[in-house]
C-alpha cells in the first residue's frame, strides 16, 4: 500500500532581483510504501528540500498532489499531517532551553497527543538518552541533540517519519549509531522513513529505495539493490601489459576513466553494461593485440552510482 504518494509536483519561485522564474521542483512523482526506507537524494539545489517541505505542508506547490495515507496535504491538511512527523533541521528543531523530556512532551502536545513523562522517558531510554533526559538540550552533544530530535519525531507515533539530513555534523561513531537506530525503528516499530541526505554511506547501508533529483526533476527512482547490481555489473577494471607508448585514445569510445600506468601495466575502468559493448571492447583489445593481465568487475559504492547518475544528467542538460 502506498503510504505517501507525490504526483506531478511543481513548484516555481521568482528570483527577487532578476525576476527569473526558477522551477525548483519540475513535475516529480514517486510513491513510498509502508515499512520502507526511501532516500531522496540530489546535489544542492536539486529541489529536495522544497519537495520535503511541500510534503510537510510548509510550502504550497504550484500544482500536483501529495497524499499521505490517502489524505491530500493541501485539501485535508490536518488529517494528512497526523500521519507524518519530521526532523527538518536536526537539532535546530528543538527548544534548546528545554530538556529532551520536555521537548518530547511539548511536541507531542502540540499535535494533540498527551504524553506522560513516564512514556517520554521510555522513548529516551530506547535512544540511550535516559541519563540526559533532564539536561537542557543546549548542553547536549550534537549527536545527542540529533537523536533527541529523532526521538521527538518518533514519539509522535506517526506512520511516516521524515528525516532531512539526519547525520549532518555528526562524528563517525555517532553517525554509525544513528544508522543502527534508524534500522531498528523501521524493523521494530514498523515505521516508514523518508530520508533526505548527502551521506551516501547512510543510503548504502539503510535505504530500500532511492530517488535522485537534479534540477528539480527526478532522474531515477529505483530499488537501491537493483541500482547497485546494475552498476556493479557494468563497471570493470582493465589491466593491460603494454609498453609505455600505448595510447588510451584507442579506447576513447568506451569512455575509460581513472587511468594509471606502473611497471609496464596500464589500468583503467570502463562501463560495459550492454553485452554488445562488452564484446566490442574485447574485439578492440584483440585488434590491438595487447596482452590482458586481468579484467575485474569493480566493487561499486553508492556514492559512485550517485555521482555517475548526476553527471549523466548534467551532460544531457549541457547538450540540450
Amino acid at each position: 500500500m502506498d503510504l505517501l504518494k507525490v504526483e506531478n509536483l511543481i513548484k516555481t519561485y521568482k528570483k527577487r532581483k532578476s525576476g527569473e522564474v526558477v522551477r525548483a521542483v519540475d513535475g516529480i512523482s514517486f510513491r513510498i510504501e509502508k515499512g520502507e526506507i526511501f532516500a531522496l537524494l540530489g546535489p544542492n539545489g536539486a529541489g529536495k528540500t522544497t519537495t520535503i517541505k511541500a510534503i510537510c505542508g510548509l510550502i504550497i506547490p504550484d500544482s500536483g498532489t501529495i497524499k499521505i495515507n490517502g489524505y491530500d496535504v493541501l485539501k485535508q491538511r490536518s488529517k494528512a499531517l497526523k500521519h507524518i512527523s519530521a526532523v527538518l533541521e536536526g537539532n535546530r528543531n528543538l527548544y534548546w532551553r528545554m530538556t529532551p523530556v520536555e521537548n518530547i512532551i511539548y511536541f507531542c502536545g502540540i499535535r494533540g497527543k498527551r504524553m506522560r513523562k513516564k512514556e517520554a522517558l521510555k522513548i529516551l531510554e530506547e535512544f540511550g538518552l535516559l541519563e540526559k533526559a533532564d539536561q537542557l538540550v543546549h548542553q547536549l552533544s550534537r549527536g545527542m541533540q540529533q537523536k533527541t530530535a529523532i526521538a521527538v519525531a518518533l514519539a509522535a507515533d506517526t506512520d511516516v517519519i521524515l528525516l532531512d539530513e539526519p547525520t549532518l555534523g555528526l562524528d563517525v561513531t555517532a553517525a554509525v549509531e544513528l544508522r543502527k537506530l534508524l534500522r531498528r525503528i523501521v524493523k521494530e516499530k514498523g515505521k516508514t522513513i523518508l530520508l533526505s541526505t548527502h551521506d551516501m554511506n547512510l543510503v548504502e547501508e539503510i535505504a530500500d529505495r532511492v530517488a535522485i533529483m537534479n534540477h528539480g526533476k527526478l532522474i531515477v527512482c529505483e530499488e537501491k539493490s537493483k541500482l547497485m547490481r546494475l552498476f556493479s555489473a557494468r563497471s570493470y577494471r582493465i589491466k593491460l601489459v603494454t609498453n609505455n607508448s600505448f595510447d588510451l585514445e584507442a579506447f576513447k569510445e568506451f569512455e575509460p576513466r581513472d587511468p594509471a600506468i606502473s611497471n609496464g601495466v596500464m589500468e583503467f575502468s570502463v562501463d560495459l553494461s550492454e553485452p554488445r559493448k562488452f564484446f566490442g571492447f574485447v574485439e578492440r583489445l584483440k585488434s590491438f593485440g595487447v596482452e590482458v593481465e586481468s579484467i575485474e568487475q569493480e566493487t561499486v559504492n553508492f556514492e559512485k552510482i550517485f555521482m555517475k547518475l548526476v553527471e549523466q544528467t548534467e551532460e544531457r542538460s549541457l547538450v540540450t
Binding site: L88, E89, L94, Y95, R111
Partner: peptide, 18 residues
C-alpha cells in the same frame, strides 16, 4: 530564527490555535 517555527507549523493542529 531558532528553527522551531516550521516544526510547530507542521503540526496537524493549525498554527493559529497554537
Amino acid at each position: 530564527q531558532r528553527g522551531t517555527l516550521e516544526q510547530v507549523f507542521a503540526s496537524p493542529v493549525p498554527f493559529e490555535f497554537q
